[in-house]
Amino acid sequence: MNSQAHSPLWEVFVRARRGLSHTHVGSLHAPDAELALRNARDLYTRRQEGVSIWVVPASAITASSPDEKDAFFDPAADKVYRHPTFYEVPDGVAHL
């Protein structure tokens, strides 16, 4: 069986700390939502606890086409989740 079609891509959003919004941190593969959530915890929050995680099937995201970018985004310049960025891991929480 080819797992390709059956282990879909999930986009991961993490609330790094209380008071911050969820931010896109990356993506991963998982066959279902439960596993996607667990995998996200292990992959994207290895260095800190107490965060909230969302996983969204990548196929469920509707993106604007680049051609419409100005008209589409100018009125809503604050939608930061459209500009995925890896969130910061605090220094000094490493394993040493």
Binding site: M1, S3, H6, S7, P31, D32, L35
Partner: peptide, 16 residues
């Protein structure tokens, strides 16, 4: 690991 990945896929399909 193929049989494990296949099992997870089959389970997800059943649940869906």
């Amino acid at each position: 690991g193929a049989w494990v990945r296949d099992a997870a896929t089959a389970y997800a399909a059943k649940q869906a």
